[in-house]
Design a protein around this nucleic acid. Structure first.
Lengths: 156, 156
DNA sequence: AGCTACATTAAGACTATTTCTTAAGCTTGT
DNA sequence: ACAAGCTTAAGAAATAGTCTTAATGTAGCT
């Protein structure tokens, strides 16, 4: 667990090996996965990281993992002293932004079955290493319903 | 209309005055607003802009507007020749990413009424100048249902 | 002023999607 | 071998949101 609700996100984390989930918990106690971060991916609650305010999110390993972390002040130092870091982190967040936007559009336009198929198509490697409970949380449905969807797909 | 589905997003657009909506159209023909861009905001389909692939989105004025636009190649030139642009556009997209992430979490965690209240709280100025049809599309509901929600809120 | 187009409200019937519940069987790590 | 959690199952139930129709309101255009 590298970030808990109520704490400030102190680090931008690079995943060298393993896999993390970032999620929020709603008032009913249900977890909602905002995303996963596996090898060579970055993860942080940017809102909390840059503002210094307490996070509403959790970031937690779902596999044994090794990571590299940079603190806020050190990253700022790099930003100021070496423009390449602005460049690289711009590109990283742009890519994540594009992903997130596609996902939001999918959420509006499709039911859970289609979203599951889209997820499988887009993140095949990730899907095969994640338990269905985590995928269900990502899709915004219960594990039981995901099971129904899977059955339904297999019948086609 | 500064971007249509099927065309490449050639410009990063700065809104000097007025207001734009960015939206997709699903297979039923329903519009889904991904976001709005008013004064001093930037808008583009970044996926299409950076990849050069046809967009699936529309960007359209909903008020008489004046804009400034920069083309892909010119922005690249600025990125390469002046590190400040990497910096500034990193910050711009980071802010948008944070917004989008909050919104996705809200979509998972709340029903349409709560999302509407959240939208009003967060974008009060924007909400007052948008027709409810556009807000409904942003919330992912029909205008009729938004009307019910508004009535319901006023009864409390 | 008047017209047109569109936005808003209304309200009831309807329904698709998804949850809830309970339970049994299956995996996997220790 | 055991415990814990994951997966499938399946029917009942809930609910949020849509659809439909229609009347009313509003704002720009000529």
């Amino acid at each position: 667990m590298i970030l808990q609700e109520g704490f400030v996100c102190k680090h931008y984390t690079f995943v060298e090996k393993g896999c993390f989930k970032m999620y929020g918990i709603d008032e009913k106690g249900t977890e909602h996965n905002l995303g996963f971060a596996a090898e060579n991916d970055w993860v942080a609650d940017l809102g909390s990281f840059y503002s210094g305010k307490p996070s509403k999110l959790f970031i937690e390993a779902i596999e044994p993992s090794t990571i590299l972390q940079i603190e806020h002040q050190d990253l700022l130092y790099l930003y100021v002293n070496s423009p390449k870091f602005d460049r690289n982190f711009r590109v990283i967040v742009e890519e994540k932004f594009i992903e997130l936007q596609n996902r939001l559009l999918q959420n509006f336009s499709s039911n859970a079955e289609q979203r599951y198929l889209d997820f499988l198509a887009q993140y095949a490697a990730l899907a095969s290493r994640l338990p269905n409970t985590q995928i269900a949380s990502y899709l915004g449905i219960t594990p039981e319903f995901l099971s129904k969807i899977r059955k339904n797909i297999s019948l086609k």
